[in-house]
Amino acid sequence: MMLLLDIGNTNLRWGLSDGGPPDEVRVVRHCAAVPLDLLADWERLNTPERVVASNVGGASVATAIGRATRAYWGLDVEFVQTRAHFGALRIAYPAPERFGVDRWLALVAAHRLVPEAALIVDAGTAATFDLLLADGRHLGGLILPGVEMMRASLLAGTLIPRIASEPTDEPWAVDTGPAVAAGSLQALAALTTRLYDRLEQQAQTPPALILTGGDAERLIPAMDRPAQVVPDLVLRGLFEVVSGEEAQAVG
């Protein structure tokens, strides 16, 4: 049994792998430390054989998680790093270390999940867009502020009042709060459509559109291309990488 961790900018997702991707995924906000409810859950776990993690949340949370796993089970966390090549997957960045490990693991999982080209949208604190051809060639990607960061930056730089609101079913709004709420979702959805169509032209066949991240479900109503939400995409990629390493070791 392995404990798999996806440490994002804001949230930590974790699950137990017993020969496959985690059946159940838990999500907590980490605030650059170890949440008490996470420790409470881990106190009830049997000792895992390994703890494997993806971390883009910073050094402090990584250090705190490492202390907890050593205290509970005497295990160090194995942090996965981005690689230029993994199987047929080849990332476009000339400097792999500059490509976020969460984005890389999402590509690993997407390439295993669907046979066609894919546009992977991770709607978290930041929104990332990555284009992948069916043969494993990563074309590159884009990064924007996520939904909440986009709204917060607009409100911080203007005198628009902070009105808690979610967009209506229409892509536009008739009041300021809903206009801000709808604008952030429609901006990400519009860029998704543009990239999807460009990828379809290059692949010469409709690609898969895979959404992940904490705001993936919020984006669905704004999408005008068929999409599937895979909340545990990074954890699935983590499992694929660990499984591939173990297969190579046995071979």
Rank of each mutant, 00 (worst) to 15 (best):
V114N: 09
A40M: 03
L132S: 08
W73S: 08
V80F: 02
G87A: 07
V80L: 15
R70I: 01
P48E: 08
P35T: 01
H30N: 06
A118H: 07
L38Y: 02
A126I: 14
R112L: 06
P48W: 03
H30S: 05
D37F: 00
F86H: 12
A109Q: 10
G124F: 07
R44K: 14
D122N: 15
T125H: 13
L45N: 08
N46C: 08
N46P: 07
H30K: 05
V77Q: 01
F86S: 05
S60H: 11
L139K: 03
Q81H: 11
D135E: 15
S54D: 01
A117N: 08
A110H: 10
T82M: 02
D37N: 03
L133Y: 06
R137E: 12
D76G: 05
R98D: 12
V114Q: 09
G136S: 06
A106R: 07
E97W: 11
G58L: 07
R112W: 10
G57Y: 02
H30Q: 08
W73C: 08
Q81F: 03
I143F: 13
G58Q: 05
R70K: 13
A123W: 10
H138M: 06
A117E: 08
V80P: 01
T63Q: 12
A53G: 03
G74V: 09
L131T: 10
L39T: 02
A59D: 00
S60M: 10
D76K: 01
P96H: 06
G140Q: 09
R137V: 08
V121N: 09
A88R: 14
A126G: 15
D102V: 13
L107D: 05
R44S: 11
I143Q: 14
L105F: 10
T63M: 07
L89P: 02
F129Q: 12
D122A: 14
A117T: 05
